[in-house]
Structure formats: C-alpha cells, structure tokens
Design a binder for these strands. Structure first.
Length: 604
RNA sequence: GCCAGCGUAGCUCAGUGGUAGAGCAACUGAUUCGUAAUCAGUAGGUCGUCGGUUCAAUCCCGACCGCUGGCUCCA
C-alpha cells in the first residue's frame, strides 16, 4: 500500500559476520529497517514486562509485528508505554550487535531464559553455528541483517494488538501479537497513516451505508446481507449481464431448492467433511440441510436422464445462494458472509473435452473481469501433493491429465501463473484468479475446480461411443465467485463511483427553481422511457446543495436545467469527475448515455 | 472461536454516578436561487440486551449480542 512512499536514502545493514553492507534496493532497505524496529519493540516489551517470551518478529508488507508469549494480554495503554520505551531506547542509541554462537550454547542460553519457542526454532532451523543479535538486554536468534544502531530507527508507530497462535496453528500456544509500522521519515509515516485514512473512505461497508446499497441487521443475524433497492439494482445489472453471457456461451440455467434431506449431503460427502460449516435443522423428525454448495443439486438434475457423449458438454449454471457457518470473528461486510450467492456452474464433459472446456472458462473469466477494468490478475494453479496420494480422491492419472489441461489452457491464453503443490482441495486441482484492485489489493474471485469425488459418489456417467457407461468429468466454476464479495470489491475498486451501466441512479435532474420543474419532468420522462435510471431533485433547495448531494451519492451525471435550457430543449451536463461540461440537447445526451451503457464503459 | 478496542438520534460524534447534547439528514415555513451546504422553526433517543452494586446507573461490575482490527479459515 505504501510502496511509493519508501524513503530513498541508501542504508547500511549489519550482517551476522559483523560486516556492514550497503543495501541497494529500497524495498529491502525498508524491510530491514522495519525488522530492526520489531526487535526494538521486543526489547522494549521485555524491559517493561519481564518474563515475556519471544515468538517471531518479521517485517511485513506494510510494517512489522512481533509475537509474544505473556502472562496476561496487552491492552491499549500498554502500546503507548511500549512506544515510549522504544523512543527511550532510540535516544540511548544502542548498538544492534550481531554475534555467532555454537548451537548447543545458544540452546542452553535460551532454555535457561525459558524461551522454549526460540529453542524450538533453533532446533529446527539452525546449523552448527547460528547468528544472534543483541539489543540492550534482549538477545534474539535472528539471521539479520539489521540496522547498526537504535538511533537510526526514528519514525515508527504501534498500530494494534491481536491474538495469534504459534506457527499459525490453533492447537499450539496462543500468543499476543503487536503490529506496528516504521518509515525512514516522519513524512513517510504520516503519508502511510493518511493512506489508511483514504482506504477507509473506499471501504465498501461505509459506501454501502452512504450509498444505501445494503445492510446487515443485528436482529436478523450477522453475515446475512439485505440488499436495499439501490443495491438490488446494481446486483440485477451484474446478474443480467452475466446471464446473457452464459447463454451466449452455451450454458443452461437451472434452479434448485435451498433445503434438502441430509441424505443428499451424506451422499456428496459434505455431511462429513463440511459438517462444521453447515446449517442443519429438524423437520418431522428428519434432518434437513440448508445447502452449503450447489453441486449436489446440479448433479441430481444431470441424473434425471441418460446422457450420450454426443450431448456433452453439459453446462448447468445458477445464481445459487448457499449458507455456510463461518466463525464469528471472520465475518467482514460483504467480503465474508454466511449467506451468499455464487455465479455457479458445473460442466459435465468427457475426458477429451476437458481442455477446450477449461480454455472456455478461462476466456469467459477474462472477459468478465476485463469488463470491469480489472486487467491484472494473479493466477494460482493448485495441484496435489504427489507424496501423499492417499489424501486425495481420484487417480494419479486423473490428477495429471487435469493439471495438463489447466496448464495448457493457461499457456494458450498467455497467462502467467504460480503452481502451488499441495494446495489443491482433496477432490481435484484448481485454478484461482485473484484480481488486483485500484489500490493494489488482491481479491479472490474466479475459481475453476476439477472434482473427482462427486462423480464417483453419485455415480455420474455418460454413454460412450462403445455403448458403455463412462465416468463423467466434472468441473466446478464461479467467475465473480460470490455476488456479495464481487460487489464489495467493485465498490472498493471504484471507490463507489460505479460505471454508468451499474449505477443505481445514472442521472439526477436539477431544476434551478420551481418554474423549471415541469421541463425537468419532461426530460426525466424522456430519459426514463429510453431505459435510463433518472431521478429528479425537486426539493426546495439551491442548486449547489443538490449538486453536492448528487456528487456525494456518486451519481454519474447531473443535468442542470434553468431558463436557458428549458427554452431550447437543452440540458447542462455535469459529470461527477470533470464537473460542468456545458450544454447539449436532450437527444444528444441520451445517445451518449445509451452508448456508455451499451458498451459498459468503465469510465464515462 | 481466540485477543484487544468499541456500541449514545437515520448518519458522524460529544458527555456526566443524580433519568442526555451538537452538526448533518428528516419535517414545517420563508426564500426561487446557475455548478459541492440559504435562513428560521419543529420533531426525533428504553444511551446494544439482560443481570448485579448503589438511595440513584447511559456512566461502576458481570454475562450475552453485535461491530472493528488481527490470528485461523474461505466465495
């Protein structure tokens, strides 16, 4: 987030051999600087809270953290005390001093201090000799390098504290993490804090409230999104756009109920491996499940008849709403909810159709994402861990040919990707496409997954040219991912200023005084009957007031009408980005708007 | 779920152990206005919920609910 605000002065960092070397890359320099600041913080914490034991304390993208094992958790006031102590250590300008240690001596030292987490790390990672850094009283096992002295660590701020787990494992020791950030200069630090402020302004939760798009009610339950009229307009535009495109690309739409006997999900296997995420209820002494996935339903539809290889591929699509229990602490606006609608589809095909189907899906995904101006994605190809085939459904042959198809399709499209071994779900390899928004953040959207499990469990087949039954290949895919999440991402990406075709209100008419109301209504009628979403602000307020409100609502176009316009069939056009554009005829404006909508222009 | 912080009018936020205030929005009236806030008036709150301490709780304590930042997980 703060990439461009990295200070440029070259630094010298001290390596474990005691040598100071100049660091050429500004990113690396800043990371070293922050890593040293995290050591500074750890030293301050150990001064103030004797007996606090150390976890790890790396630099991160935007700052640093350090994990501690403490008797009692840190509080807000503690952060201030720690900051003050850090400043004190900066004033003392202590050396951050490297030295080498023989492994057993180091283990004895840390064990003697009760630092068993450090001992664990040393046992895992260290060779016969290892490097440590001393900062005041604190000695830390660390490969460095570090800034030479604490006096160089000027501008830092502690931001928050949080619980974490040793090695990120819920079953291991709970730790206390303190986050902070540091910069080479006060201006850079303030710039970063300012950026955090800016990011908050484009937070989809704030925009959703300000623009009256959606609401989550405490009374109705956390993680359940209610779409207000304006939000629903936006959602319907997204859906009808992608619905048309699905039909054009040979998908058929299906609709399934939200509730099923548990038998359906026992057959699919979700009842055992997805149980903790499912909502279950009793009806007449039978157990029912609220669907957490659409796939079993689509499979039932597939199985209503026999399918010849000539019928394949069959592509079933649905805006399928699913409900999943997510831990309360993970919920986040529209981006992480408990009920959401996937633009889901399942492709049933033969093995030799796999490649072209995957290619088709990738092409579709690119088309969709580019429509919103997302030109950059990060693609991950997740495959199994070949060392543990027993953890996966399907044969080695299945996995290999599926991976080949995914890989060839990515190559064909000229897309770069990272191959992630062991990251696949147990039921098949997958491609994830993460889009990168206007301020550089990544969001998971498109996912394309093979499924070797469900066709087996439901015995899903087709009749081949040999008149025998063959196991179908099933591909599960979602392009937006979920409509809730995608909408949230769009809002943040556009900072609420959505493209015209998606804007709940596309035009606001602003009559200058009451005598222009009638003309404004005529213009509104003309534009509305041509299919635009137009509102008229006929409140008894001054023009500037109405403009201000329309601007804050991010309405793409404001049409000011007064005497000059009413007499000539004109409107004065105000664009939310450029401001006053001058006059044009109602018909010219209409044509222009229709063009923007028809082409789904990202920028008017 | 775990740790910390937070929860006061539709929104943004003040506030105090003695049953609450501002700005904006809303409503009413005046004004009829040329590219980001016209003026005046009115109305609006069981201070998240439930318990406890107290003569008295929005304030202190506890539990619960929810939100925020993280951890874990994920569309």
């Amino acid at each position: 987030m703060a990439k461009e605000s990295i200070g440029m002065q070259p630094i010298k960092a001290v390596y474990p051999d005691g040598q100071a070397r100049e660091i050429a890359s500004p990113e690396e320099a800043l990371a070293i600087f922050r890593h040293s600041t995290s050591h500074l913080m750890a030293a301050a914490v150990q001064d103030l809270f004797p007996g606090t034991r150390l976890g790890i304390g790396p630099a991160t993208e935007d700052g640093f953290y350090y994990d501690f094992q403490t008797e009692s958790p840190f509080h807000q006031e503690d952060l201030e005390k720690i900051e003050a102590r850090m400043s004190e250590l900066v004033r003392q300008d202590l050396e951050i001093q490297p030295f080498l240690w023989e492994k057993q001596a180091a283990i004895d030292y840390f064990r003697g201090k009760g630092e068993h987490l450090k001992v664990e790390l040393i046992e895992e990672r260290a060779g016969d000799t290892l490097s440590c850094y001393r900062l005041g009283e604190m000695v830390d096992f660390c490969r460095g390098p570090h800034m030479a002295r604490t006096g160089l660590l000027a501008d830092f701020k502690l931001l928050s504290n949080a619980a974490s787990y040793w090695k990120g494992d819920e079953k291991r020791e709970p730790l206390q993490r303190i986050y902070g950030t540091g910069f080479f200069s006060r201006e850079d630090l303030q710039g970063y804090l300012h950026k955090l402020e800016e990011a908050r302004k484009r937070d989809h939760r704030k925009l959703g409230k300000d623009l009256q798009l959606f609401h989550i009610f405490e009374m109705a339950g956390p993680g359940f999104v209610y779409w207000l009229p304006k939000g629903t307009t936006l959602r319907y535009e997204l859906e009808s756009f992608t619905r048309q495109e699905h039909l054009r690309r040979g998908y058929q739409f299906v609709t399934i109920p939200h509730l099923a006997r548990n038998t359906l999900f026992k057959t699919s296997g979700h009842y055992s491996f997805f149980r903790e995420n499912m909502y279950v209820l009793d009806i007449e002494e039978e157990e029912y499940v609220i669907k957490p996935m659409n796939c079993p339903g689509h499979i039932l539809i597939y199985k209503t008849g026999l399918h010849s290889y000539r019928d394949l591929p069959i592509r079933y699509a649905e805006f399928g709403t699913v409900y999943r229990y997510e831990k309360s602490g993970t919920l986040h606006g529209m981006l992480r909810v408990r009920g959401f609608t996937q633009d889901d589809a399942h492709i049933f095909c033969t093995p030799d159709q796999v490649y072209s189907e995957v290619l088709g899906v990738i092409d579709f995904a690119e088309f969709i994402l580019k429509t919103f101006g997302f030109e950059d994605y990060k693609i991950e190809l997740s495959v199994w861990d070949p060392a543990h085939p027993e953890n996966y459904a399907g044969t080695a042959e299945n996995w290999q040919s599926a991976e080949d198809a995914l890989r060839r399709a990515l190559d064909e499209k000229g897309l770069r990707y990272a191959r992630k071994e062991g990251e696949a779900a147990f039921y098949g390899p997958k491609i994830d496409m993460k889009l990168i928004d206007a301020i550089g953040r990544e969001w998971q959207a498109t996912t394309i997954q093979f499924d070797f499990n469900l066709p087996e469990r439901f015995d899903v087949t087709y009749i081949g040219p040999d008149s025998a039954k063959h196991r179908v290949i099933m591909i599960h895919r979602a392009l937006f991912g979920s409509i809730e999440r995608f909408t949230g991402v769009l809002l943040e990406h556009f900072a609420g200023a959505l493209p015209v075709w998606l804007s709940p209100v596309q035009v606001v008419l602003i009559p200058i005084s009451e005598r222009h109301h009638e003309y404004a209504r005529q213009v509104q009628g003309r534009l509305t009957s041509a299919g635009l979403r137009v509102q008229m602000d006929d409140r008894n307020e001054k023009m500037g007031y109405k403009i201000r409100e329309a601007q804050m609502q991010k309405v793409p176009f404001m049409l000011v009408v007064g005497d000059k316009e009413a007499s000539g069939g004109l409107v004065s056009v105000r664009n939310r980005f450029q401001g006053d554009e001058g006059q044009c005829s109602v018909e010219d404006f209409l044509l222009r708007l229709q063009q923007l909508v028809a082409t789904r222009a990202v920028q008017p």
